[in-house]
Simulated assay, not measured.
Amino acid sequence: MYVATKGGERAIDNAHAWLAEERRGDPSVPELSIAQIREQMKLAVNRVMAEGSLFDPDLAALAIKQARGDLIEAVFLIRAYRTTLPRFGMSEPVETGNMACDRRISATFKDAPGGQVLGPTFDYTHRLIDFALAAEGEAPRAEEGEPRLEPTPHIAGFLDREGLLQAEAEGTPTPPDLTREPIEVPADRPLRLQALTRGDEGFVLSMAYSTQRGFGRTHAFVGELRIGRVAVEMEVPELGFAIEIGEVELTECETINQFQGSKTEPPQFTRGYGLVFGQSERKAISMSLVDRALRWEELGEDNVGAPAQDQEFVLMHADNVQATGFLEHIKLPHYVDFQSELELIRKLRAEAMASREAAE
């Protein structure tokens, strides 16, 4: 139960005005433009798009600016805006084998069919602060910055041909949409993957790390990690066929995991899968590890009680917008609730003191 506080609206208006002032910062410093955020803070923009379930770099950059760099608040803004958008139809499944790859690596085959493309990566940097960036000069240009345009086959396909990789089960033609219907557990794999791709990167990373430390019986190799752009197609009923309506940047990861086999399955490899908007390598790899850990039941493995194997624990706690809402609501007025508990504690203490005095 909440009670109105006189003068509260004025205080809230002043708080909003102060927030806007703090967001702007020192007026003598040039204001950040949306283009600057979009082009120079791409990884933050990509995270907001992935966890907000909306591919729009300009809108994600605007949300980051409005949220003063608080990415979870920016995700919240994106999701709220997304609910206002009309839905005209559904796109066809994207074909990642036709991805124009800026980056494509494998930790399983040195001479991977189609070649390895390092692309833009922190993997080989020394993690030393580059004070030259403070000079705000032009960055050196890469000698080879063109994406691989020809179709690049998936490495998992080569293992498939030898029967070394477990075949994927056929999914439902139209999986449920997590953005329109609340999740319920147990959830099938398409719904779990949706929850993981929208999940908080830090939480999914922690779950993935726990599987590597032994909490989940997952020993994974990165079969393939690719980043690039894919065409988005949509079928137009009047035409009777699909047409390309645009393209999106995606990061896709397939991990290859050991599997000893079962009574019905021979020894073979299994896979984990991750797919997210933009360049989000850490998220895609983490997602694939957690995906594999959650598949223990369908693969006939034992549940060792690891957190990453618990659907309810993972799926119900991965969403940072839900977590933030529930966490931050406790700073709102709870005067009546607290006063009732305060009175209860006082009453119990008085009764305890009276009993003790009577005993003496």
Rank of each mutant, 00 (worst) to 15 (best):
Q66D: 09
T270Y: 15
S28D: 08
R68C: 12
S206I: 00
M207C: 10
P93G: 07
I285N: 02
A139I: 01
P93I: 03
D56E: 04
A60K: 00
R198L: 11
A100G: 07
L191A: 10
Y81M: 15
P175Y: 06
N257V: 14
M287R: 10
P27E: 06
S288P: 03
V248A: 03
L85G: 14
M287C: 08
Q260A: 15
M49P: 03
E343T: 04
K110L: 14
I105H: 06
R127T: 13
F338V: 08
D177F: 07
I256A: 03
G214I: 09
A17Q: 10
D310F: 03
T270F: 15
G89A: 05
A306D: 01
E162A: 15
T270M: 14
I345M: 09
P120V: 14
L315D: 01
I256W: 06
L250F: 08
P307I: 05
R82K: 15
I12M: 10
A35V: 06
E31A: 09
A50P: 03
R271E: 14
A352F: 15
R24D: 09
G171F: 09
P57M: 04
Q260C: 13
V276L: 08
D26R: 06
F241G: 05
E247T: 02
T174N: 13
A107Y: 13
V94D: 10
Q36W: 08
L348K: 14
E170S: 14
F221K: 12
V314Y: 00
T172I: 10
T324Y: 04
P120E: 10
P151D: 04
A352Y: 13
D177E: 05
E265I: 15
L250Q: 03
A20F: 11
E181F: 00
Q194R: 04
A231G: 13
A284Q: 00
E73T: 06
A61L: 03
V336W: 07
S106K: 07
P153H: 02
E170F: 06
L332T: 05
P151K: 04
E184A: 06
E297N: 08
E181V: 06
M316S: 11
P173Q: 09
E73Y: 11
G305L: 02
A132Q: 14
E297K: 12
L71G: 04
A354N: 12
T255I: 14
Y2T: 15
M1Y: 13
S28G: 12
K6G: 12
Q36K: 08
Q166W: 14
V222A: 06
Y124M: 12
E146Q: 14
R141T: 11
L149S: 08
A358G: 01
S28C: 09
R192K: 09
E298D: 11
E281P: 09
